[in-house]
């Protein structure tokens, strides 16, 4: 995953300017910055949800910005993206939200998708909310479902925006353990976490990338 002379701004706010950077794959990467600098936008660019104004972003040497929705689809299905806030489909229950990627892309049969989703909900003891609409569920449950939805289709790359926000330490621990377990099984290879929360380091061994002054800098491997 590589940025070449990439510039990006939202309205008048500059986020990235002429950035050339290669993201390490096959490990955990913690992207940190001051609040409001543009971590979420950076992660959205990496997920192909936002296009830069200048420069290029390539995944596996393919320029993402030149690909149509259909051409990018195989790459996109190798990624799991989770929002810091929102992102659940309001008129579907939590379990339907969770199963949506599996059902839509026919990765599993409906019965298999049911089993996988229920198993995930049980692991985090939130199965009682399965038929609740997002607006009827507590914030921490909503957050957890968005995170679980990003990994239910077993992507190679996880892009998580503020995953610990609103979650208890114990839940975070379970979540990170689940990702590590998936890594051991060869499902998830790279995890990118954009957050200000230092607790991330407690849960995983991360490479740290700092976003400041419209540039990315690789700081250290902890």
């Amino acid at each position: 995953m590589e940025f070449k002379n990439l510039s990006f701004s939202v309205a008048d706010q500059k986020i990235l300017e002429d950035v050339t950077f290669t993201f390490s794959l096959g490990r955990w990467v913690w992207i940190s910055s001051e609040g409001g600098v543009g971590k979420s936008s950076l992660l959205q660019i990496m997920a192909g949800l936002k296009l830069s104004q200048k420069g290029s972003y390539s995944v596996n040497s393919k320029n993402v910005e030149e690909l149509s929705f259909e051409e990018f689809l195989p790459l996109r299905l190798q990624m799991g993206y989770s929002f810091d806030l929102g992102g659940l489909i309001h008129n579907r229950s939590l379990i339907e939200n969770l199963k949506l990627p599996l059902n839509y892309h026919k990765k599993k049969t409906r019965a298999e998708a049911d089993l996988i989703a229920m198993d995930l909900l049980r692991q985090f003891d939130i199965q009682k909310y399965k038929d609740h609409k997002p607006s009827d569920a507590p914030g921490s449950v909503r957050k957890l479902v968005v995170l679980l939805r990003s990994l239910i289709h077993l992507p190679q790359i996880l892009l998580w925006d503020d995953p610990t926000m609103g979650l208890q330490d114990e839940t975070c621990q379970k979540l990170f353990s689940l990702v590590k377990k998936l890594q051991e099984q060869g499902a998830v290879t790279s995890v990118f976490i954009a957050s200000q929360d230092q607790k991330i380091l407690k849960h995983a061994d991360c490479e740290k990338v700092q976003l400041s002054g419209y540039h990315l800098e690789r700081l250290s491997a902890t």
Partner: peptide
């Protein structure tokens, strides 16, 4: 409009679901 504000459209795209067909 609310789906847009609640980032549901982006969520669909991130799951590889084209909002135009879905």
């Amino acid at each position: 409009g609310n789906m847009r504000a609640n980032r549901e459209i982006e969520a669909l795209e991130s799951m590889g679901i084209n909002p135009l067909s879905f």
